[in-house]
């Protein structure tokens, strides 16, 4: 049995890849799937912090690839979900430590271990780490912000997904592309200051699988090492839950696309 491999990628840095990887992996695990989430950002490990397991990293992805540790030794079991595991990136090696054969071997082994989903958290850029994170993917979650450089970079990434992946090379059917719009600010969209969901969809020619509103809860979640999807009260968390449900085939309406109506006091005093 092989696992479904999902790459979370974007091209541009700082758009929310790791936040998304952590919430996506957690959300899939919450629906009962056995999930591994792998940090491909060798040298700049961060997924462990967002998942809140940074003090439990003993062995990492590179250790497994180089045969210095087994997968079992290296997978960190999530504190909250017993069917969720984290594989940290190496903090000391350089990115050449990842090899295509090595990555393939790890992914195959996870598939044999009964994992349903493997979430690959890609580094920014289009260099080796990003290439290897997407190479074996069945699905891609392209994270984009409503901002010119992010939109342009994600178009570039969509092009790479269609040409530089195992599926593309083998003619095995395309990698399924999902667009996730994050840091969305409906009030600024209404003011004409920010690209709208529709604008981004039109430019890229692909519809969004989810829209995550800009939210202070995302920072609070990363501060405390709890994926924001677990914050049921936050709009960002709820939007991630909707997104995961859609990925699993449920149909859910988009929420949080409109600016909250201002009350009397807000209109008078601002805010």
């Amino acid at each position: 049995m092989s696992a479904e491999i999902i790459v979370v990628t974007s091209g541009k840095g700082g758009v929310g890849k790791t936040t998304t990887s952590a919430s996506l992996a957690t959300g899939l695990a919450m629906s009962g799937k056995k999930v591994a989430v792998i940090d491909f950002d060798v040298g700049l490990r961060n997924l462990d912090l967002i998942m809140g397991c940074e003090r439990r990293v003993v062995y990492d992805f590179v250790n497994v690839i180089q045969g210095e540790a087994t997968i079992k030794q290296s997978l960190i079991k999530d504190k909250r979900h017993e069917n969720l595991y984290v594989l940290a990136a190496s903090q000391t090696r350089d990115k050449d430590a990842l090899t295509q054969e090595g990555v393939e071997k790890v992914l195959d082994e996870l598939g044999k271990d009964g994992f349903d989903y493997i979430v690959c958290d890609s580094p920014a850029g289009i260099e080796k780490g990003a290439h290897l994170a997407m190479y074996f993917a069945d699905h891609a979650m392209v994270v984009v912000n409503p901002e010119v450089s992010s939109v342009r970079d994600s178009d570039r990434i969509l092009g790479l997904l269609a040409s530089k992946t195992r599926r593309a090379e083998k003619g095995d059917g395309a990698v399924t592309q999902h667009l996730l719009l994050t840091r969305y600010n409906p009030s600024r969209v209404e003011q004409g200051e920010m690209l709208s969901v529709k604008d981004v969809e039109e430019i890229l020619g692909i519809s969004v699988v989810g829209v995550i509103p800009e939210s202070e809860n995302v920072l609070a979640a990363s501060n405390s090492g709890v994926p924001v999807i677990l914050d049921e009260n936050s709009h960002a968390g709820q939007a991630y839950r909707d997104t995961v449900a859609r990925l699993l085939g449920e149909s859910r309406p988009m929420r949080f696309l409109d600016a909250p109506k201002k009350g009397f006091f807000q209109r008078v005093f601002g805010g």
Binding site: R152, D155, V189, G192, E193, S196, D199, I203, L204
Partner: peptide
Amino acid sequence: EPTAAVAKERLRIIVAQER
């Protein structure tokens, strides 16, 4: 100034060219 429309137009052109 509302600048989203400018962003959209610039992106439309550059994305088409790069594609």
